[in-house]
Amino acid sequence: MSRPTATADLAERLWQAVADGDEHAAADVVHQALADGTDEETLLLGVVAPVQERIGVEWAADRITVAQEHAATAINERVTASLAHARQRDGRGSPPHRGRVTVSCVDGEWHAFPARLVAEILSLRGWRVDFLGAQTPTPHLVAHLHHTNPEAVLLSGSLPTHLPKAHAAITACQAVGVPVLTGGRAFGPDGRYARALGADRWAADALGAVAVLEEGMTRPDPSASRHAVDDLPHLADQEYTMVVRSRPQLVKQTLVELDARFPAMRGYSDAQRERTAEDIAHVVDFLSTALYVDDPDLFTTFVTWTADILEARRVPAHSLATGLEILAGELRDFPRSVHLVKLGVAALHDRSTRPVPGPGTHA
């Protein structure tokens, strides 16, 4: 059996254990593979990571529930931790010798597993890693940097709606002289949002982050402080701020109008109405983020992905188009917002049957 085939077989076995909710079987898969000679980095990147990706895909296709997705992720996290604990117990790997780095998620970001994998790979490569986990408030992150003075901060984000907070974290870290390496789907498939927000570097994956750190990162000048509008001049029109402040009213009014224009809603249960309100809120959040980075693709990609999710849950996608048309009316005083919403409606009308890649969003 070739190595790629062996890795794929391990990933399939791990997936079956994770999908069954069997933590012990999942741990047995990876620890037996380790005993049989598969190195830990291959297990993390070639087995555990693909299984985590599959968890998100299965949720999006409505083949597993939110609870099952959470349980599967928790098992994957514990399996990863067990590998790290076994490494320390058995004395495998080299002691830290490359320097100290901090790995953290953006404030509000609950999807910490990708960052955890990066932290483990860096540890294997000889870095001393402070892993701060999910949704670290920026003031706490900066306080940690003052205490540890690391070579760099690796800032992870999966949801684009956290980009404004990521921007604040980037500038705050740089203001204390620590360079920022960003990663995760939130920053765009090619790191476009990382560049827009002034991050020092971006990496597509864990091995890319290793390469950037080994190349070395230049410390920023702490005296070169800047504001969000310095990186994103379009924010001067205040439209982003106004839409964010109007979010509760926008969600409420859109839901009221949708109830009047979409008769099927009259038979919705309280739980279904609550999920509809949450969907509208997500639309407003992605709209405001697209305003923040001035990128229509961020919004239209989310809209078409949402249509796929709704149809997987047997909700007609045209209800989303109706909701967007209502939202455009509520936003009539905000020209950039109206333009983005109209682009979203057009994207829905042009949507093909081919699955649309998601923006990194899952429960």
Rank of each mutant, 00 (worst) to 15 (best):
V176W: 05
K165I: 09
R185I: 07
A204C: 07
R195I: 03
V212A: 11
G191C: 03
I170V: 15
V229P: 00
H227C: 10
L163E: 07
A199G: 09
D231I: 01
C173D: 02
S223V: 14
P233G: 10
T218G: 04
D200P: 06
T182F: 04
A209H: 12
L197G: 02
A211M: 08
G183Y: 00
F187G: 06
W202T: 04
V178C: 13
G183W: 01
F187A: 04
P233T: 07
A172W: 04
R185K: 12
A194S: 14
T218C: 08
D190L: 08
K165V: 13
A194E: 05
F187K: 08
P220K: 04
G208S: 10
P233E: 03
V178L: 10
A228Q: 10
D221L: 07
D200K: 10
V176C: 13
G183N: 08
H234L: 11
M217D: 05
G216Q: 06
R226C: 13
I170R: 01
A228S: 15
T182Q: 07
T218Q: 13
C173V: 00
V178E: 02
L181H: 08
L181P: 09
F187M: 09
S223M: 12
V176I: 15
V229T: 08
L197S: 05
G198M: 01
D200M: 03
W202E: 05
D190T: 13
G191M: 01
P164D: 10
A204V: 11
G183I: 02
H227Q: 15
R195V: 07
L163A: 09
P189V: 10
L197Y: 00
R219M: 08
G188P: 00
R201M: 06
L235A: 03
L232S: 04
A168P: 06
L232C: 10
R201F: 02
A204T: 11
V178K: 00
G198Q: 03
H167Q: 09
Q174K: 11
A236R: 14
G198L: 04
P179V: 06
D200T: 15
G184W: 01
G208E: 04
G198P: 12
V180S: 11
G198S: 07
R219P: 06
R185M: 15
K165W: 03
L232N: 03
W202F: 15
T218L: 13
S225G: 11
G208T: 07
H234V: 11
F187I: 11
V229F: 01
S225P: 06
P220E: 04
P164Q: 01
H227V: 15
L232K: 01
D200L: 05
P164H: 03
A199I: 07
A199F: 00
S225C: 14
T182V: 14
A186N: 10
A206D: 04
E214N: 14
E215H: 14
D190S: 08
Q174F: 03
P233I: 09
F187Q: 08
A172F: 07
S225I: 14
A228H: 06
L207P: 09
G184I: 00
D200C: 12
C173Q: 02
L232W: 02
L213T: 02
A172E: 11
S225Q: 15
P233K: 05
D230L: 05
D230T: 10
A172M: 06
A206C: 12
